[in-house]
């Protein structure tokens, strides 16, 4: 659209060159009174190249949202990034001031928050929030901003988009609110889109439409897609990383991971996906519970629940390349070959 001011290219991002985003050894801690701090993210590294979509899947509470918030520099207090670096478009962003971060947000990075209330202001209507974001990052008139806001809502399939500009977040259904957040994240054409469970409240037809919309942005943007829906990951991601207890335990091309999981946690997760087959009296969860902050596990965090664990698993497995992809397991599953 002509009204969208073309952004000057912020960095050279020829495919082989610098990655769009590089996260190195990220550690996010929450202090606990009279106790050792809790590591929500415990040494996570990954890289993203222009036009790529990385899926982050895994255990509820394993630190996926904290990775997203770290990139935006908004880890909630008393949480803190205590180690690691985050480099966006060739520039370190983990040590920026608040004002500098404001510019990064929206302009370079657009985020779809998992919590609609972090992303949306409950006492202002949807239109004014979209317009404010447009005018903060693009040099347009108020009338032009209104048009851009309208089109942004229309693009995410919101019916009667013009009327909805005047709606307040509480007047919207869960899925409409989620689409408003997607519109807000995309409105300034960011280089990096971080989408944290962006389609949980959407029916499959609208979800398909949103995935198409994201895909259409891939010539200019790069996407991190956090999701519990492995079907969604299969549709849009090039690579996925599987998280367990603050760590990425397995990364690979989406096809490799789905058809031949190497980490036993990934294998268990795939087995628990509900399927369209005969109705079963029970579904199959992974036995046992994820570790808590007080379980001082020195070895593999998944070992207490793992049917393949041996004494070796009392030592922490590092990420090692298995068939060219990083997996942290002493006894990896056979994968597709088996």
């Amino acid at each position: 659209m002509s009204m969208v001011a073309e952004k000057e290219s912020t960095a050279s991002n020829d495919a082989a060159g610098t990655p769009i985003l590089s996260v190195r050894d990220l550690v996010v801690e929450f202090p606990r009174p009279n106790n050792t701090p809790f590591r929500a993210v415990n040494g996570v590294s990954f890289e993203l190249r222009q036009g790529e979509t990385l899926g982050i899947v895994g255990e509820s509470g394993s630190g996926k949202t904290m990775i997203a918030l770290s990139i935006l520099g908004i880890v909630p207090l008393p949480g803190r990034i205590i180690e690691g670096s985050i480099t966006l478009l060739g520039k370190r962003i983990d040590n920026l001031s608040l004002a500098e971060l404001q510019k990064v947000r929206g302009n370079d990075v657009g985020i779809v928050f998992q919590d609609p209330m972090t992303g949306l202001n409950p006492v202002r209507n949807v239109g004014s929030q979209l317009k404010e974001s447009v005018r903060r990052h693009q040099h347009v008139s108020a009338a032009e901003a209104t048009e851009i806001a309208f089109h942004a809502l229309d693009d995410v399939g919101i019916p009667a988009a013009r009327d909805r500009l005047k709606a307040y977040p509480h007047e919207l259904s869960g899925g409409l609110r989620q689409r408003v957040m997607i519109a807000l994240a995309l409105i300034n054409h960011p280089d990096l889109i971080v989408a944290d469970e962006p389609t949980t409240a959407l029916d499959s037809t609208i979800q398909a439409q949103i995935l198409d919309l994201l895909r259409a942005r891939l010539d200019k943007s790069t996407i991190i897609m956090i999701t519990h829906d492995l079907g969604v990951a299969a549709e849009i991601c090039d690579r996925i990383s599987v998280m367990y207890a603050g760590r990425m335990v397995e990364t690979g091309s989406i096809a490799d991971v789905l058809s031949g999981p190497r980490h036993p946690y990934t294998e268990g997760l795939l087995a628990a996906v509900p399927k369209f087959d005969v109705r079963r009296p029970t579904l199959v969860p992974i036995p046992g519970q994820p570790p808590t902050a007080d379980d001082a596990i020195t070895g593999c965090s998944f070992a207490p629940r793992c049917t393949h664990a041996q004494s070796k698993c009392n030592e922490r497995p590092e990420l090692e390349l298995i068939d060219g992809r990083p997996v942290s397991c002493w006894f990896p599953r056979p994968g597709a070959a088996g």
Binding site: E59, S60, A201, L269, A272, V284
Partner: peptide
């Protein structure tokens, strides 16, 4: 229950559904 398990990984989802059942 309105979307009771949509924010859960599929393993915990299965656990919660079994609990409800």
């Amino acid at each position: 229950a309105d979307e009771p398990v949509s924010a859960l990984d599929v393993s915990i989802q299965a656990q919660i559904i079994n609990l409800l059942r």
